[in-house]
C-alpha cells in the first residue's frame, strides 16, 4: 500500500540532498532576514522579542515556498507529472509521498534556520522551548499539506508561482498566524491556558487539509 508513497519520498530526498544549492540558498536567505531586521530597526529588546516569532515564521514560510516550487519544478521538468498520472497507483499515495518529502525538507530547513535565530536574538535555551516542537510540526504540516496539492494544481498553469501564492496565502494564513501566536507564547515563557486549545485547532486544520487533499489528488493529476 505505502510502497508508492515511500518510493516517491526516497526519490525526492535523494535528489534534494544531491543538489545542495537549495539548502544553502535557503540558509543565506534566512540569515539575511534576521540581519536586516536586527540592524535596520533600532528598537528595544522588548519590541524585538514581540516581532521575533513573526520573523521566524517569515523565514520558515519562505523556505517552505522555496521547497514546494523546487519539488514540483522537478516533477514538471520532463513530464514526470504526466508519468504520475499514468502510474497504476492511487493518486492519494502520490500525494502522501510528495507531502512527506516536502514536509521533511521544510522541517530540515527549519532546523537549520532556528539556531541562527537563537543566536541573533540572544535567546536563552530552556526546557520550556520543547513546546516549540509540536508548534513547528503543526504549523509546518498545515502549510505543506495545502502547499502540496496547490502546487500540483499550479504546475499545470503558465504562471505557476503566482497562482500558487494566490491560492495558498488566503487558505494558509490563519494557520501561520496561530503558529506565530503559539511560538510567541513559548519564546516569551508566557504559555497561557489558551496555548493547548489553539495548538489543537491548528492540528485539526492539518487533519482536514490533509484528508481533503488525499481524497482529491486523483482529480488534480488529470489535465
Amino acid at each position: 500500500m505505502m510502497r508508492t508513497a515511500i518510493s516517491i519520498l526516497k526519490k525526492d530526498l535523494r535528489m534534494e540532498f544531491r543538489s545542495k544549492e537549495s539548502i544553502l540558498a535557503m540558509w543565506i536567505f534566512s540569515l539575511l532576514i534576521f540581519v536586516i531586521f536586527n540592524f535596520t530597526f533600532e528598537v528595544s529588546r522588548l519590541v524585538m522579542l514581540e516581532i521575533a516569532p513573526g520573523l521566524l515564521w517569515v523565514a520558515f514560510v519562505f523556505s517552505g515556498m522555496f521547497g514546494l516550487n523546487q519539488s514540483f519544478a522537478l516533477e514538471k521538468e520532463n513530464g514526470n507529472l504526466r508519468a504520475m498520472a499514468l502510474m497504476p497507483v492511487d493518486g492519494g499515495q502520490i500525494y502522501v509521498g510528495k507531502f512527506f518529502s516536502v514536509t521533511i525538507i521544510m522541517l530540515m530547513f527549519e532546523a537549520l534556520i532556528f539556531p541562527i535565530f537563537i543566536i541573533f536574538y540572544d535567546l536563552q535555551l530552556s526546557l520550556g522551548m520543547f513546546r516549540l516542537i509540536p508548534v513547528l510540526l503543526a504549523g509546518t504540516i498545515g502549510f505543506t499539506s495545502l502547499g502540496t496539492i496547490l502546487s500540483a494544481v499550479a504546475v499545470h498553469t503558465r504562471n505557476q508561482q503566482i497562482l500558487l501564492s494566490l491560492l495558498l496565502w488566503p487558505l494558509v494564513s490563519p494557520i501561520i498566524i496561530w503558529s506565530v501566536t503559539l511560538t510567541g507564547m513559548v519564546l516569551s515563557g508566557e504559555v497561557t491556558e489558551a496555548f493547548y486549545p489553539l495548538l489543537l485547532r491548528v492540528g485539526a486544520f492539518d487533519v482536514i487539509f490533509f484528508t481533503l487533499s488525499y481524497m482529491l489528488f486523483d482529480f488534480i493529476l488529470e489535465d
Binding site: 513530464g79 504526466r82 497507483v89
Partner: peptide
C-alpha cells in the same frame, strides 16, 4: 488500475529525473 499497469507510453516527454 489494471489497464494502467499494462500500458506503456513513449512521447516527447522523457518521464525521467535528470538528477
Amino acid at each position: 488500475r489494471e489497464n494502467k499497469a499494462k500500458l506503456a507510453v513513449i512521447s516527447h516527454e522523457m518521464f525521467l529525473y535528470g538528477n
